[in-house]
């Protein structure tokens, strides 16, 4: 059966603001006919080339490799040259609102100042640190198993879609953010790299580091290259313990608390977890939540605390697999 190219009519509202001439931003509406082939960048290009030449946005490669074209459509972070308009119509209907990744950082229309993103990216030393011979005689071999460890962390194109969608970034400007964490992991898992410890120290600080991620999975959702930054963040958690970089603080104790609970009971004792990570005072602060948890059966009384039947075996497993020193 032969099919012809399908088209649909849509209304696109685009965020416009020129820092040179405009006092306030505004939305400009355009009506377009789009085809099943069109991606968001085609829509932007058509507006620029057929309606308003001054519309400004970053783009270069047009095939998902340079990372310059990320924007938000109806608040969803997308890579403009990859995201199909028909898919967005399925999600949001025939009215699409195109915004910059972050409205506070707009230079002009959809172009933002990504300085904060790049500064944090720089902070993890996003390059191989190694004594490389000036004139090497042979390749530096990396086995398939070693490559496997880097996982998909190497595919990041620095588009910033994850970073400007991360809820922690919105409230905590210190937070290094998903892209830079994924990049840090790309090198901490590379056996040729010599700066593993330094990088792990950078990413395990309280406030800016991996422990402040709230595990919302937004970064994994929006990433156009399937880098899955939250997965890399979890791996960084593990590496900080394996390498003895993790310091005893409320976040790491929370993580280790899980281990203690399993070691003692074979089950997770959520009340005990708070006591372990935050101490008695912390316990008191959480009383309202505790009451709620108790009502929902999540906190058994100490005398009712069950113990796993195979506790001895569980203890052995914990002992051989644990890397925590506290």
């Amino acid at each position: 059966m032969e099919k012809s190219i399908q088209t649909k009519n849509i209304t696109v509202k685009v965020f416009r603001f020129n820092g040179d001439t405009d006092v306030l931003p505004y939305y400009k509406e355009y009506k377009l006919e789009v085809s099943q082939e069109d991606v968001v960048l085609d829509v932007l290009n058509r507006i620029k080339w057929e309606h308003s030449g001054s519309l400004s946005y970053r783009r270069s490669c047009r095939h998902g490799i340079c990372g310059s074209c990320a924007v938000k459509v109806n608040n969803k972070g997308v890579l403009a040259c990859k995201e199909r308009v028909f898919d967005l119509i399925d999600l949001f209907g025939d009215e699409l609102v195109i915004d910059p990744l972050n409205k506070q950082r707009v230079i002009k229309d959809l172009v933002i100042d990504k300085k904060d993103f790049w500064d944090k990216y720089d902070a993890v030393q996003p390059y191989l640190v190694a004594d490389v011979e000036e004139e090497p005689e042979k390749e530096n071999l990396v086995t398939p198993d070693e490559v496997e460890k880097i996982a998909d962390a190497d595919y990041c194109i620095q588009c910033g879609a994850c970073y400007y969608s991360c809820p922690v970034i919105e409230v905590n400007p210190e937070f290094i953010g998903p892209a830079a964490f994924a990049k840090a992991y790309r090198f901490t898992s590379d056996n040729r790299d010599d700066a593993k410890i330094e990088r792990l120290e950078t990413v395990s600080q309280m406030g800016s580091g991996v422990w402040d991620c709230v595990k919302c999975f937004e970064c994994a959702q929006v990433c156009p290259k399937d880098v899955n930054p939250i997965d890399k963040i979890t791996r960084l958690h593990q590496q900080t313990f394996q390498e003895g970089v993790a310091e005893s603080n409320v976040a790491t104790r929370h993580a280790v608390g899980f281990k203690h609970s399993i070691e003692q009971h074979g089950f997770l004792d959520e009340g005990g977890l708070v006591f372990y990570s935050e101490g008695p005072l912390g316990m008191v602060q959480h009383i309202p939540e505790a009451v709620n948890m108790f009502k929902n059966g999540k906190i058994p009384m100490p005398w009712n605390l069950p113990k796993s039947k195979n506790l001895e075996e569980i203890k052995k497993i914990v002992k051989i697999s644990s890397t925590a020193k506290f």
Binding site: N18, D20, S52, G53, S54, I107, K108, V111
Partner: peptide, 12 residues
């Protein structure tokens, strides 16, 4: 003729 006369990020 171009529409954008500004000196700021003028991709046109």
């Amino acid at each position: 003729r171009i529409e954008d006369k500004s000196r700021l990020f003028n991709t046109e």
